[in-house]
Nucleic acid binder design. Structure first.
Length: 259
DNA sequence: ATGGTGGCCCGGCCA
């Protein structure tokens, strides 16, 4: 069972690359973030042609999350289940192959003194509450997506460059820690404790080629799923321009394989 | 290392 997550930075712009990658790598479940699509523009037929059921939660232009699954997709839940999603189309859940899968796009935060940073902390607390209200840590739960948080200093290219910045601040790391403490594991960390492996690189200044990135895209698994994990990898190739000339997202794919 | 790019969709805003 291959579980993947990818901030595609506009599925409209990225569809050829995403389909190419899905065809070549055959994930069983692919969580996507920043689709930047309205629901009626989501290309469900293109995923169906590759054998995937799909669900999407977006209102166009910004944010937007999706799940594609070839092991079934049932009981989709948009937002945190409230009638009106005041949280910005950043969470979608569905049951796929016996797992409750969540595709999440945590707010960026912009800067520590921004109201958007307070919203980021509130959103993370909302996610923590949602998990506790809906599940037992003994359930098969996967929370996958762009957390806009580097869990550890080893997950950024130069911690000194981030003093006073978002993505590494103590409050947001603590908020992530509370989500993990509920009963989830940052699976990639177990397989790569050394750090220095990234999932996002700024488009500007040749950051990707210089290795100036961060690991902010995470696959969090509850114990029943974590115990099945046999590998966790980040596919740097998908951050490059494709052989067909399709331009990449600024994030690449994280893949966890379950036995 | 506050922007040099790239997405939204056409003038800035957002990451």
């Amino acid at each position: 069972m291959k579980l993947a997550t990818w901030n595609v930075n506009s599925l409209g712009a990225r569809l050829p690359l995403v389909l190419e990658w899905a065809e070549a790598n055959a994930p069983d479940v692919l969580c996507m973030q920043e689709t930047k699509l309205a629901d009626d523009a989501f290309p469900s037929a293109a995923f169906a042609a590759l054998g995937y059921d799909s669900a999407h939660h977006g209102d166009g232009q910004w944010n937007g999350v999706a799940i594609a699954s070839r092991v079934g997709l049932e009981a989709p839940l948009c937002g945190f289940g409230s009638r009106e999603d005041v949280h910005g189309c950043r969470m979608l859940a569905a049951t796929c192959g016996g797992m409750r899968v969540h595709s999440v796009y945590v707010p960026n935060g912009r800067s520590l003194d921004s109201e958007h940073y307070r919203f980021k902390l509130e959103w993370l607390a909302r996610l923590r509450t949602y998990l506790a209200e809906h599940y037992d840590p003994g359930d098969a739960v996967a929370v996958c997506g762009d957390f806009n948080i580097a869990p550890d200093d080893a997950d950024v290219w130069d911690p000194a460059a981030f003093v006073g910045a978002t993505h590494v601040s103590e409050p947001e790391r603590r908020a992530l820690g509370e989500i993990l403490d509920w009963g989830l594991e940052d699976t990639f960390r177990r397989f790569h404790p050394e750090g220095g492996i990234f999932s996002w690189w700024d488009y500007r200044a040749g950051s990707f080629h210089k290795g100036l990135g961060m690991r902010i895209d995470l696959v969090l698994l509850s114990a029943p799923l974590a115990s099945r994990a046999v590998s966790a990898e980040i596919d740097r190739e998908a951050r490059k321009k494709s052989p067909k000339g399709d331009k990449p997202s600024d994030h690449t794919v994280v893949v966890v394989e379950l036995g």
